[in-house]
């Protein structure tokens, strides 16, 4: 398990940075837009409930790219690098690395052009190339409006019911997980069984992927943290996939 799987409750950190801006540097907007376009053009959307005609979109992007892939990249970073880099710095490294590894661009092309912009403030301030197929942008907006719901029909009834005491399994987080690591082995109460089942973008080694029930669980703080380090009169809730839960 990586440190970034296990942030909840970490002690010894700094006061909160209450920065309310979404982007603290203008360049961050660009990598956010690129990532969102990749999700909107991703090849699995052809089988997504909105039934996108993704194969007809005239983009050269042919890959499978979702939040799951972006998160997996961040979870596989050196844990100290994860903390050293600002949010969108992690995105820039992961996404540019993906385009190189998938052969869309070469590292040399990226490095050469980056060096050109660094060497010339005139080039760095020049407009981006224009043009392209408008149908690409139409698909991007269609994705933003219609989304990619992972809700599917239940294939089996939920194993647990409202009010049940349950225990979080001690699964290995692997390279990508949707289970906060500090919950492993802990006891919680089911406060809601969500309707239907929820898939994940791809199968993970820790057991999610296929559609399964999801539960809203309530954890008492004193079951998670040593009493003197937490606070009275609080409840911590988390939405947890059934694969991570066993009977208490």
């Amino acid at each position: 398990m990586k440190l970034q799987h296990n942030l909840g409750g970490l002690e010894g950190l700094d006061p909160i940075n209450t920065e309310v801006q979404v982007f603290v540097e203008p360049w961050e907007q660009r990598i956010f837009g690129i990532h969102t376009a990749m999700m909107a053009l991703s090849n699995q959307l052809g089988s997504s409930p909105p039934q996108y005609a993704i194969e007809e979109v005239p983009t050269t992007f042919e890959s499978f790219w979702t939040w799951g892939h972006l998160r997996m990249g961040a979870e596989n970073m050196h844990p100290f690098e994860y903390f050293r880099l600002r949010y969108y710095e992690k995105w820039l490294g992961g996404i540019s690395g993906f385009f190189v590894s998938e052969g869309y661009i070469t590292q040399e092309e990226l490095d050469t052009r980056t060096a050109e912009f660094l060497a010339s403030s005139e080039l760095a301030a020049a407009p981006l190339p224009q043009g392209g197929e408008p149908a690409i942008d139409e698909q991007v907006v269609k994705y933003l409006r219609e989304g990619d719901s992972p809700m599917r029909a239940l294939s089996a009834p939920p194993k647990f019911a409202l009010g049940d005491q349950v225990k979080i399994k001690e699964v290995n987080s692997g390279e990508h997980s949707r289970l906060p690591g500090n919950l492993k082995g802990k006891i919680a109460t089911v406060i809601k069984v969500y309707d239907n089942a929820f898939a994940y973008f791809f199968p993970t080694t820790d057991g999610i992927g296929e559609p399964m029930p999801v539960y809203s669980l309530a954890f008492q703080a004193e079951t998670l943290w040593e009493a003197t380090t937490t606070e009275p009169n609080m409840i911590y809730y988390n939405d947890i996939f059934e694969a991570y839960i066993e009977a208490a």
Partner: peptide
Amino acid sequence: VKALESLLIEKGVIT
């Protein structure tokens, strides 16, 4: 990021 975006536009990934 500008290098990346400009290359992706030229290669037809995005517009």
